[in-house]
Simulated scan of single mutants.
Amino acid sequence: MTEIHPNQRVAVLADAQNLYHTAQSLYSRNIDYSSLLEKSVQGRELTRAIAYVIRAESPDEERFFDALVDIGFEAKIKDIKTFGDGSKKADWDLGIALDAVTLANHVDTVVLCSGDGDFARLCSHLRHEGVRIEVAAFKNSTADELVEAADAFIDMSEREDTFLL
C-alpha cells in the first residue's frame, strides 16, 4: 500500500449517478463536486479527475456537465438506453473499472467516489498492484465489502455541510 505523501499522484473517479441518487434519497440535496474534489485530493498532486454521468434529457443537465468541467473534472457522458419494454439502463461500472486499471500505472492513489459494492473486487486488484484506494461515499448506502476493500474510507455523511449543497 502506498502511504500518503505530498507528491502523491491522485486520480479521482466519481460515479455521479450513485452519488446523486444517494444524496437525493438520504438528504434531498445535491453533491458539492468542488468540495468533493478538494477533499479527495487533500493537497496531493491531482493527475486526473473524471465524473461519470448519464445524459437523461433532463433540464439543466448540460449546465451541470459544464459545471463539472469548470470545477476540474473531465465529464464522461453516456446516453441512457431505453429498451422496447420501456425499461431504461445506463451505468458506468465497466468504464470506471477500465479507467481505474488503466490509470493504475500512472498514479499512487485512486479515490473512488461511489458506494457500489461491485467495485470491491476492483479495489482489491488495484491494491494488489500497489495503488492506494480511498473510497468517498455515504456510509449508510455503501456496501460493507467496498469499505473493507479500501485502504481508507471517507464517510461523506459525517460532513454533510462539506459534501452537500
Rank of each mutant, 00 (worst) to 15 (best):
I80Y: 06
I80L: 15
I80M: 14
K81Q: 15
T82S: 12
T82L: 09
T82W: 09
T82A: 12
F83C: 11
F83L: 11
G84F: 08
G84V: 05
G84I: 05
D85S: 10
G86I: 06
G86M: 08
G86S: 04
G86Q: 07
S87D: 08
S87M: 06
K88D: 10
K88R: 15
K88M: 15
K88E: 14
K89W: 11
K89C: 04
K89V: 05
K89F: 09
A90D: 05
A90K: 06
A90N: 07
D91F: 13
D91G: 12
W92H: 15
W92Q: 06
W92L: 10
W92G: 07
D93F: 07
D93K: 07
D93L: 11
D93W: 06
L94F: 12
L94Q: 06
L94Y: 08
I96Y: 09
I96V: 11
A97L: 03
A97I: 04
A97N: 06
L98A: 09
L98S: 05
L98I: 12
D99E: 15
D99V: 03
A100E: 02
V101D: 01
V101E: 02
T102C: 07
T102A: 11
L103P: 01
L103Y: 03
L103R: 01
A104L: 01
A104S: 07
A104T: 00
A104V: 00
N105G: 08
N105A: 13
N105K: 11
H106P: 01
H106Y: 15
H106L: 15
H106N: 13
H106Q: 15
V107S: 01
V107A: 01
V107F: 02
V107D: 00
D108W: 02
T109I: 02
T109F: 00
T109R: 02
